[in-house]
Each structure stands twice: as structure tokens, then as C-alpha cells.
Design a protein around this nucleic acid. Structure first.
Length: 594
RNA sequence: GUCUCCGUAGCUCAGCAGGAUAGAGCACCAGAUUCCUAAUCUGGGGGCCGUGGGUUCGAAUCCCGCCGGGGACACCA
């Protein structure tokens, strides 16, 4: 499928030419050969560093080699001219006919244009969101959700076999605390006369989740279980019935409810994951012990005492013997504990079980999207995956930095206590799903981002969401005016009339889509798709605007049916690539702006 | 103290697995806009890429030190 990528095609031609010039060179000498668009368009359509890269093993001077290579490349039918340049580059100018010929390629492939084979069908697991099931999704989760989802789409487009996964942290102290909080709402639903403080005194860790979202859960518990989970005191105020009688029931019920809500929220964002893995389930299945045994057998687990962290020693530090994993053998700073003092697994240990589970399912690569506050966790997890898999399965972690929400020029504080907690649902209601998704991808994931509620819905050029959508709407508008000719017909249109620099610039941009997809996927950087679309939209708007000054450049010209068909083909191809990119981002293309 | 991410135009940010004269939007300046496609358009100024070394034919990009900022640092998830 890479032959729709003319850069890859010309790169292959270049290597072939070079191999003829230098028959003694081993094939791997060409690995670093690149064919890319030059920064400066005056240099031509493509530039290759081939002579520079090969000069050393070939024991030849780069400029001389470049000259010889240029001569060969100039003879290719696709190439208009080729010239050595600078320290040893070869600049290529392609025949315009080759560029134009890419338009029907786009039309024939449709939104599949740009699909790549970089992933070679390898199975990859992309885990993202994985918010604790203790409450509704808020904007803090949103970025990870969008980045992860777009990244998964991107990898799929680039040829990986992708599984979208959510890991439910339903085994730890957090869900325990959630259960206590839900139980409080349950008692309230039963009409307890106890007050909140009294209740909080009775439970371990106090009442941690006070949000009103648990009120319906309490009511649902009452509807389902009646008073059977509470003490039979008429006021339901006598302390607590022993947690043994209800904790598990309430916890499972509540987690189930929370996950339903989370799935709904995610669905509103357009995120639908394939697999939900339960931490508690893994623990029940003994996956932790299994992982532990596996590591133990490799000699990677021991009992030992850690040094206190240097610099800032915690107040309550005391030397303690723990079960430790030799993370240091895999590049981590210190060995990491697997068991708490009560013998239960640490979060890390359970996560090792989670990763063993992934490896056992046969994934060749693993990807996580985490919040930046988990950055300190990356090395140990990579160490664990390396240990479990014998270093055969790479784990990439994409860190998503925090998002500052701004409204009316003022930061919207993310505080549960102050009641200004912005839920994901609020955000979507306010600006719409597509604006949320697009905007979340307009920054590199690991850069902090300001999300301005006013700007993302602004209809102006400096709003990239609008800018890109507007380009697509214009494409559609032109095609509608022309009676929506089928792509198959347009693909047959003679294109020789496409000669204006703005038209050719647009075509050039379209031809870089496949390599953009591939590079973004390999780098795990979905934001590049947003930038590409912005540039593509820019090229299209330029052409549109030129039509205002110069009527001969308008897309539809009654007096020139041939030229009109050619331009409609170009417009259709542009719209197709925009849709293809938006599909990766999970954004719905609009037919018209309103 | 250690680890990690970051530092690019006045502002917000790109910079494609080292490549030629470092880009975009906003802001600023100067023009255009009786019209067909104005949710404006065209052009311009503006940067020792935090800093000092190193590797290389070649560094914003890779390595080391320093300065400045965010984040994380045993039995929390």
C-alpha cells in the first residue's frame, strides 16, 4: 500500500539507483536514506540525503556522489530534473503530471488513502482513560481519553492491529472508600437519623467521596436490597452493620454503576473501547501470584530493605523488609515493592499482573496514555514488562499534561470542594464533542494546554477547529453546487489544466498525507494529524481566495467544463483527505457551516 | 537530593527519528476590499532556538554541565 506514497516510491528508486552505482555496498547501508519535502519549496519537490548517508561506507566525497546520483535520478520518467545541492543533497523536481496523477489515486482509495503498513499487522494494545471508577469523568480525564483514542485510530490507520483497552482500578483502597461513601447514601435513602460526621467517624479513612452523584446509587441500593444491608435499628443509626455483611455487595454494585456512567461519558466523547479489564478480576484469578512466581523463577524477586529516598525523607520513614522486584536490572533507579505490610499486592504488583495478562494475550507492543503525574511510574513499568516478556514486548507511555480550562479569560478552578468541578459532560455540553476532541489534539500531549471555552467555539481563522471544518464545508459546498459528481467519474477527469502554483501546492500537500500518518504513528503523536489538517486547510483556503481575485481560478466555470472537472477532482480529493484525518481524530466532518 | 518533561518571534505553539536561508497563528505595520467564493484578503517587519561545552561534513534536534519552570519520588491508586 505504500506505493500510494510517492515519497516512499521515489526513495525506493533512489536506493535502487544508488545500488547500481555502488554495487559493493551492503543493503543496510541505505537504511538512513530519506526522501522528504524540502523546507524551501524553491529547492524542488523532494530532497534526499542519500549521498550524504552513503558517502562514508562508499568512501566517496558526498558532492561527487550526489552529482552521479542526480544524473541517474534525472533519467527517471517521474523526474523533471535532479540536481546536487549543498553538502551532498539531491533535489528533485517531479513532473507535474506525476503530481496530478496522485489526485485520482486519492479518489480511488477514498478515506483509505494514507493507510500504511508501518504496523505490519502487529497486535498492539492501547490502554487509556483507566480512570478510577469512583466518580464521573472530569476534564482531567478528557485529554487522555482523546489522545488515547486518536492514537489508537492512528495506529490502526498505519497498519497495526489495535485493541482499545480500559483498565478498571477496582481493587484498591479507593473503591473501598467509594463503597463506604455509597453506603452512606444508602443509609440516607433508608432515612437514617445519623449525621454525616458521625458516620465519617465510624469508617476507616473518613468519608472521602461526598459528591451528590452517589445519591442515586444509594437509592438504587435501597430499591434493590431494601434494608437488608443495614442494621435493623429503626432509625438506621446504630453504628454500622459489620462491613462483612455488605461491603463487597455495595462495592461491586457501586463500581458497576460508576462504570456505566463512565462508559456513557466516554460514548458522548465518541470513545468506545474494546476491552475492559478489571483489576479485581485479575486478582481473583491469581494473576498476581502467577506474575510473582514468573519473576521469582527468573531470580528477580527478593526480600530486602530499601534505602530511604535521598534528600527528602518522609516523616514516618522506617526501615522495613519488603518483597522487592529487581527493577534496577532493567534501568529503574531503585527496586520496587510488590507487597504491602499486610501482604496484599501494591498497585504496582497488580499492574504487573495486568501487564502479564496483556503479554499472555499475545500483544506485540503495548502503549499507555497516562497523566503526567504518573511520569515517575514509567520506568518501573517498562522494567516489569521487559522482565515479564524477556524484553520482547516494548511498552510506550504517552504522558498527557494537565489542561487548564479558561472561561471569559479566567481560569476555571478544578475544585471539588468549591463546587466548580468541571465534568466531561459539562464540557461537551458547553462546546460540543468535536470541538473538545479537536482542541485536545492541537498540542503535543506532554505540553500543558489552555482550553479556552470561548475560543474553541469562535468562528474565526485563529480557531483551528473552525478553520479545518470550514475547509471541508467549502469542499462539500463546491461539490454540491456541481451536483455531487461521483468520485469514480472525477477520477477519470483529465487534469492537465491544474497548473496554478496554488493548485500544485495543494496537491503536494495531499501527497504528504501517507508519510504524515506513518511518522505520527511511529512517534505516537496524534497531534501531528491536527497540524497537518490545519496546513491542508490553509492550502485550500488560499486557492479559494485566489478565485476571488482571479475568476479563472474559480472551481466551477460554466465556460470551461474540462477545467471544472479537473478542479472538482482536486476539491473532492481534498475533502477526502480532510475526512480521513478527521476520522483519525474522531471528529465528525461538517457538510456546511451554520 | 534523585528521576522526568519543558525552555524556539511580543504572545500561544510547530519543527517531520541531525540536514540547506528555523516555521504557523495571534499581535504589530502597510496595502486591498462597488465583485462572482469576505465567517475578510495580500504583503511586511520581528528570533545569538535559555546558557556553556562536546560529538558530527552539518545540531533547535544527540551527549554532558549550569540557569529557570512543571511533575513525580517506600507499604496512594
Amino acid at each position: 500500500m505504500t506505493d500510494h506514497d510517492i515519497f516512499a516510491a521515489l526513495r525506493a528508486r533512489t536506493i535502487a539507483a544508488l545500488a547500481e552505482l555502488l554495487p559493493d555496498l551492503p543493503a543496510d547501508a541505505f537504511a538512513r536514506v530519506q526522501m522528504e519535502p524540502p523546507r524551501d519549496p524553491s529547492h524542488g519537490d523532494m530532497a534526499t540525503n542519500a549521498a550524504l548517508v552513503v558517502a562514508k561506507p562508499a568512501r566517496q566525497a558526498p558532492p561527487k556522489l550526489a552529482a552521479a546520483l542526480a544524473e541517474r535520478l534525472a533519467a527517471l520518467p517521474e523526474v523533471e530534473s535532479a540536481a546536487p545541492a549543498g553538502p551532498g543533497f539531491v533535489n528533485l523536481r517531479l513532473r507535474e503530471s506525476l503530481l496530478r496523477a496522485q489526485v485520482p489515486v486519492v479518489l480511488a482509495e477514498g478515506e483509505r488513502y494514507g493507510d500504511g503498513r508501518a504496523g505490519a499487522g502487529r497486535r498492539i494494545d492501547v490502554e487509556y482513560v483507566s480512570a478510577n471508577p469512583t466518580g464521573p469523568m472530569h476534564v482531567g480525564h478528557c485529554r487522555g481519553a482523546v489522545v488515547g483514542d486518536a492514537l489508537a485510530n492512528l495506529l490502526a490507520k498505519a497498519g497495526w492491529d489495535v485493541t482499545k483497552e480500559y483498565y478498571i482500578n477496582d481493587a484498591g483502597a479507593q473503591v473501598q472508600a467509594l463503597a463506604y461513601a455509597a453506603y452512606w447514601r444508602y443509609l440516607q435513602a433508608l432515612g437514617t437519623t445519623m449525621d454525616e460526621d458521625a458516620y465519617a467517624q465510624l469508617i476507616p479513612g473518613g468519608l472521602q467521596y461526598k459528591g451528590e452523584y452517589l445519591i442515586p446509587v444509594g437509592q438504587a441500593l435501597r430499591d434493590r436490597f431494601g434494608a437488608s444491608l443495614a442494621s435493623q435499628d429503626p432509625d438506621h443509626r446504630v453504628g454500622l452493620l459489620g462491613p462483612d455483611h455488605w461491603l463487597e455487595t455495595v462495592r461491586d454494585f457501586t463500581v458497576e454503576r460508576m462504570m456505566e456512567a463512565i462508559r456513557e461519558d466516554l460514548a458522548m466523547l465518541g470513545v468506545v473501547q474494546d476491552v475492559f479489564v478489571s483489576e479485581a478480576q485479575l486478582v481473583r484469578e491469581g494473576k498476581l501470584e502467577q506474575a510473582e512466581k514468573l519473576l521469582f523463577d527468573k531470580g528477580l524477586i527478593y526480600r530486602g530493605v530499601l534505602e530511604p529516598p535521598k534528600g527528602k525523607t518522609p516523616e514516618d520513614w522506617e526501615p522495613r523488609e519488603q518483597t522487592l522486584f529487581r527493577a534496577t536490572q532493567f534501568g529503574d533507579e531503585v527496586d520496587r515493592p510488590l507487597r504491602k505490610s499486610d501482604g496484599s499486592g501494591t498497585y504496582f504488583a497488580n499492574d504487573i499482573a495486568n501487564h502479564l495478562h496483556k503479554i499472555e494475550r499475545g500483544f506485540a507492543e503495548l502503549v499507555h496514555v497516562w497523566g503526567a503525574d504518573h511520569g515517575g511510574y514509567v520506568k518501573r513499568m517498562q522494567a516489569a514488562v521487559a522482565a515479564l516478556s524477556g524484553s520482547t514486548v516494548p511498552l510506550d507511555v504517552v504522558l498527557a499534561q494537565i489542561v487548564h480550562v479558561v472561561k471569559d479569560g479566567q481560569p476555571v478552578r478544578m475544585s471539588k470542594r468549591a463546587g466548580t468541578y468541571v465534568t466531561l459532560r459539562d464540557l461537551i455540553d458547553e462546546v460540543g464533542r468535536d470541538a473538545v476532541r479537536f482542541t485536545m489534539l492541537t498540542r503535543k500531549a506532554d505540553a500543558q494546554m489552555e482550553f479556552d471555552l470561548d475560543k474553541v467555539v469562535e468562528q474565526s481563522r485563529d480557531n483551528p477547529v473552525f478553520y479545518v471544518q470550514y475547509a471541508h464545508a467549502r469542499c462539500r459546498s463546491v461539490l454540491r453546487s456541481a451536483g455531487d459528481p461521483p468520485a469514480g467519474d472525477l477520477a477519470l477527469a483529465p487534469l492537465d489544466s491544474l497548473t496554478d502554483p496554488a493548485e500544485l501546492a495543494l496537491i503536494r500537500r495531499l501527497t504528504t498525507w501517507p508519510r504524515t500518518v506513518e511518522a505520527a504513528a511511529i512517534a505516537r503523536e496524534p497531534h501531528r494529524i491536527a497540524f497537518f489538517l490545519h496546513d491542508l486547510a490553509g492550502d485550500f483556503h488560499v486557492l479559494w481566495n485566489k478565485g476571488r481575485d482571479d475568476a479563472t481560478l474559480r472551481f466551477i466555470r460554466a465556460d470551461e467544463p474540462e477545467a471544472t472537472r479537473a478542479r472538482l477532482a482536486l476539491v473532492a480529493a481534498t475533502g477526502t483527505v480532510i475526512r480521513s484525518g478527521l476520522a483519525v481524530m474522531g471528529v465528525t466532518p461538517v457538510e456546511e457551516m451554520r
